[in-house]
């Protein structure tokens, strides 16, 4: 399996798609473009409409209005079983009354492929997802959580879809295994060259695996971009806060009130968004565009760095410092802190 020649073209898109359940609008006038061969992740909080969206993309739900396109073909009313796509479900939805091999062969069996050829193909898929051949006759309940993930992946790949959808397949897995599978998924994406469309509410999963990310809120997409762009240049307070810890300062007439500072160089109105790692402790004559004194209220260990909760006047702030640089900062002390405007982002809402 290799990356197609059309890599980078728009392979799947929606045009003003809306989905209503009675009075509830799960997805609103949503327009989206996914490129051929990319690992595209849709992130959003629970109830943001991301699962409804992926079910419409996969043909498991019909949009109330709007259309879904596969390259130049309108597939809005093409049912799931006739689309060149396949979904890996949150529950994995493995057929528990069938063996590992029978699960993987299922799509080919439905197409009338002879048993010998099906078996050969299933074993090939098992090798791709790194399942031993001896698992072919195993029952699903005899497989561990990670092995079941691999069976679900192999089953989806065996149907040879153009696009693979993933509806939060790692959400019920423990942290250690999830980290391993995140790397394996990314590796599988690279090796197969297929388009992966992934849904998650975990920012971390999205950042590790994705080429591009869309952030969903209240049934619509609020920002799309590379993980780095979205993290460092969030388009709104919502995106900034959703993508991790952040300090938000309201700007009025080019000033922020607490800590008091002139930030007119970045803008006169809106919100100034600053990641905790850009808030620095200042020593002696250290320079910074904005400088202020703050009390260290508490300290939290985050592995390779320490997180400090600070109070500067009425404002509660968060700073994160790599452990070797954090010496001398302890709860209860008052210290000088600061940041540069070049590290901050201005958002309108």
């Amino acid at each position: 399996m290799a990356r197609s020649d059309r890599s980078g073209d728009i392979i799947l898109s929606t045009r003003n798609v809306t989905k209503r359940y009675g009075q509830v609008e799960a997805v609103r006038e949503l327009t989206l473009e996914i490129r051929d061969g990319e690992f595209f992740t849709i992130v959003g909080p629970s109830g943001s409409g991301k699962s409804t969206l992926i079910r419409m993309l996969g043909g498991l739900e019909a949009p109330t209005t709007g259309s879904v396109w596969l390259r130049d073909e309108d597939i809005t009313h093409v049912p799931a079983n006739r689309r060149p796509t396949c979904m890996v479900f949150q529950s994995l939805a493995l057929f528990r009354h069938r063996s590992v091999g029978e699960n993987i062969e299922f799509a080919q069996k439905m197409r009338g492929v002879p048993p010998g050829e099906r078996r050969r193909h299933a074993l090939e898929m098992m090798r791709i997802v790194r399942l031993p051949d001896s698992y072919y006759n195993r029952r699903i309940h005899q497989c561990s959580g990670g092995e079941q993930q691999r069976v679900a992946l192999a089953r989806a790949l065996a149907s040879d879809p153009t696009i693979l959808f993933f509806d939060e397949p790692l959400s019920a897995i423990d942290y250690r295994l999830r980290k391993i599978l995140e790397v394996e998924m990314k590796d599988l994406h690279r090796r197969t060259g297929k388009t992966f469309v992934y849904i998650t509410h975990s920012l971390e999963e999205a950042m590790v695996m994705s080429d591009r990310i869309s952030i969903m809120r209240d049934g619509n997409i609020v920002q799309t971009g590379t993980p780095r762009d979205i993290y460092s240049r969030p388009g709104s307070r919502f995106v900034a806060q959703f993508m991790g810890e952040v300090n938000v300062f309201e700007i009025r007439e080019g000033r922020i009130a607490s800590p008091e500072a002139d930030v007119s160089a970045i803008g006169r109105h809106g919100y100034l968004v600053l990641r905790p790692e850009h808030l620095r402790r200042l020593d002696g004559q250290d320079a910074a565009d904005v400088r202020f004194e703050a009390i260290v209220e508490s300290e939290y260990m985050l592995g390779s760095r320490l997180q400090y909760h600070l109070r500067a006047g009425d404002a509660s702030l968060v700073a994160e410092i790599p452990i070797p640089a954090a010496t001398g900062v302890t709860p209860g002390i008052t210290a000088r802190w600061g940041f540069d405007l070049a590290d901050a982002t201005l958002t309108e809402d």
Partner: peptide, 23 residues
Amino acid sequence: YDVQQEEAAYDLGASRMQVFREI
């Protein structure tokens, strides 16, 4: 019973009748 098994079978190309018979 995990109802998504039926959706998964349908998504893998089975007709409604095949889903009933196979799942």
